[in-house]
Amino acid sequence: MSDVVFKPKILVFSTDKISDPGIDQAGLRKIHYSPAVYVISLPCSSGIKPKWILHAFEKGFDGVFIAADGHECSYSPKCPEHTNRIIEESQILMKANNINPKRIRMAAICSVCAEPFSSHMENFSKILIGLEDMKVETGKVL
């Protein structure tokens, strides 16, 4: 196999009750997405620490995707605000560390959002591949 296609490594933060079942659903229905996608499931997307995100980039992840609950969140009606705040803080940290802030993304994924999840992954991969600085920085072959 001469597989030279660059598959960006994406770390996904999902939530136990809503978006992780959505991602499971994609598998159940054999909807394919990039195998370079890794998922960590948490109780709520408002609990993600920017420090973890920075750690992921430092360890070599190309992108971080937050599969949030949006307004469906059962913990807090302010969940989207909190998650947004976390992303903003992370982006500040990322800029300080010379990481393109476009490498983090968020979308609400519901518990049956199998197709939306796989298309988010595809789009995000394309965006990551398209980022100029990524090519230089990672030196990976397209």
Binding site: I23, G27, L28, H32
Partner: peptide
Amino acid sequence: REQCSWPHSDQPREA
């Protein structure tokens, strides 16, 4: 299974 063998059944090595 749900997050590896099934969605990546098209690419066994990567899975």
